[in-house]
Write a protein that binds this DNA or RNA. Structure first.
Length: 453
RNA sequence: GGAGGCGUGGCAGAGUGGUUGAAUGCACCGGUCUUGAAAACCGGCAACGUCGCAAGGCGUUCGUGAGUUCGAAUCUCACCGCCUCCGCCA
């Protein structure tokens, strides 16, 4: 079982108490202590059980050892100060020196013991997912998700619609074999008009979010350090899904699986003025996912790739604002689909189907004619204080105490899957594809993607 | 990659082993004064953890980690970051 890297890094148990607590409590450690039954109930809704007995036993020990350690420390500090004073006056310090000499070993032993206890508590707390919001539907898997709304009408074709693989290859714009040759399976090469359509989608999304939705465009590193991955909750539990890059000096970085990681970590360790909130960032990046364990799923086409482009919208808000912000942010993702006239439905994920860090999640699913079904194209979540606590990201009102802020993010949208949706929904019987109206300004006069020959 | 310099509270900036969690200034908050504001004056103002009903106590933190010491912002070592100069490079 993993514990945080900052815990692992230190081989000797001389870390301060404070530093240990920085590592834990994605969940509010106070909640776990004071109302463990609330935590257990929340976990049960996610279909997970928790055994609180070990935690309570550890916690009792921690309390006793920590108090004792601090008392010893206090005693030593007092004596040391006295030594200083006596020495300054030129008096005899031998008796005090004798007393303080015995303190060292006892204290060291206590500190070591405490460090072990705190590491165990850390590991325990770090595994507990966020508590689902009360409005989250009950359910243990995707079948429990609730459709909130359906927008648009799936197109009806008087021919059998092709899937995006057939369409893209016919257009000479998608080359899956080249992706495999150059890299590996689940990598794709785009070219010509299809590549341009992909770029047009990205530019269109960026323009809408910055000009109409009030987001600030950011450009971020695509490789991030482990601390950032911990901050947003990818680590310690989901390292297998990440591409890891070793460095010559023995450290390592990770390729981002979503821009959520670098963008949300902008506020890691910061105390922001509440009046300066909300912060709204939009960011377009490639995303890299190793997706260990997904072999055999969606192997055809561009639906599930190791590399794909995606927009993320991130909002950093005052705690009391986050539920309104979730509705707003989801609406921003919906606006893109609406402008593209792509039929979609909005799903409220049930407790058992939500991600580790989320308090509530809406998925947007776009209609894919060839699959005759809706497929996920955006996921919008409110994490409440879960990520913020992990990242020590706080806000402060005038004259007030710092408190964890709330973070949200949503895809707006996954560009590759949007491309798939456009190809399939805008196709015509001859294999050509009409360019959606809103993309025309970005297509340099191309109004139809035409098949080769 | 080579040489040198530097990392202290929201900011600026003192502090080189002992009642220093840290001078001073700015910013900020409260008050006096003023018709109001400004100025002036007075007072307050770090974070985190922990114990406590509370008042408050205790602990930790001066880039990070490891050492020396009864005691470290201050001494030693390693690492990280930033700045300057040289070299190289998209």
């Amino acid at each position: 079982m993993h514990i945080c890297a900052r815990s692992m890094r230190s081989t000797k148990n001389r870390r301060t108490i404070d530093q240990f607590f920085k590592d834990i409590s994605m969940l509010d450690i106070q909640l776990l202590r004071s109302q463990p039954e609330v935590v257990a109930a929340g976990l049960a809704r996610r279909g997970a059980a928790i055994d609180l007995a070990p935690f309570e036993a550890l916690e009792a020990q921690r309390k006793q050892v920590q108090t004792q350690t601090q008392d010893l420390q206090s005693r030593r500090n007092t004596l040391s100060k006295q030594i200083g004073m006596l020495k300054a006056k030129g008096e005899d310090i031998a008796p005090l020196m004798a007393e303080v000499a015995g303190l060292g070993d006892a204290q060291k032993a206590n500190e070591d013991k405490l460090a072990v206890l705190l590491a165990e508590l850390d590991a325990f707390a770090a595994q507990i997912p966020n508590m689902p919001h009360e409005s989250v539907p009950e359910g243990t898997d995707a079948s429990g998700n609730v459709e909130v709304l359906r927008w648009g009408v799936p197109p009806s074709f008087d021919f059998t619609p092709k899937d995006h693989v057939e369409l893209g290859e016919g257009l000479g714009g998608l080359d899956f074999a080249a992706g495999v040759k150059i890299a590996a399976s689940r990598f794709t090469l785009m070219k010509g008009e299809v590549a341009r359509l992909h770029r047009a989608l990205a530019q269109f999304m960026l323009d809408v979010h910055t000009a109409e939705h009030g987001y600030t465009e950011v450009y971020v590193p695509y490789l991030v350090n482990p601390d950032s991955m911990f901050g947003t909750g990818q680590l310690p539990k989901f390292e297998d899904d990440l591409f890891r890059v070793e460095r010559g000096d023995g450290t390592h970085l990770y390729l981002i699986p979503t821009a959520e990681v670098p963008v949300t970590n902008i506020v890691r360790g910061e105390i922001l003025d509440t009046a300066s909130l909300p912060l709204k960032f939009v960011c377009h990046t490639p995303c890299f996912r190793s997706e260990a364990g997904s072999y055999g799923k969606d192997t055809r086409g561009m639906i599930r790739q190791h590399q794909f482009d995606k927009f993320v919208m991130v909002q950093i808000v005052a705690p009391e604002m986050s539920w309104d912000a979730l509705e707003e942010l989801t609406g921003h993702a919906e606006a893109i689909l609406q402008k593209l006239a792509l039929p979609y439905r909005k799903m409220a994920l049930c407790a058992g189907d939500m991600g580790f860090s989320a308090a509530k999640t809406y998925d947007l699913e776009v209609w894919l004619p060839a699959q005759n079904t809706y497929r996920e194209i955006s996921s919008c979540s409110n994490f409440e204080a879960f990520q913020a606590r992990r990242m020590q990201a706080r806000c402060r009102d005038k004259g007030g105490k710092p408190r964890p802020l709330h973070t949200l993010n949503g895809s707006g949208l996954a560009v590759g899957r949007t491309l798939v949706a456009v190809l399939e929904n805008y196709q015509r019987a001859d294999g050509s594809v009409t360019v959606p109206d809103v993309l025309l300004p970005y297509m340099g006069g191309i109004i139809t993607l035409t098949p080769l020959r």
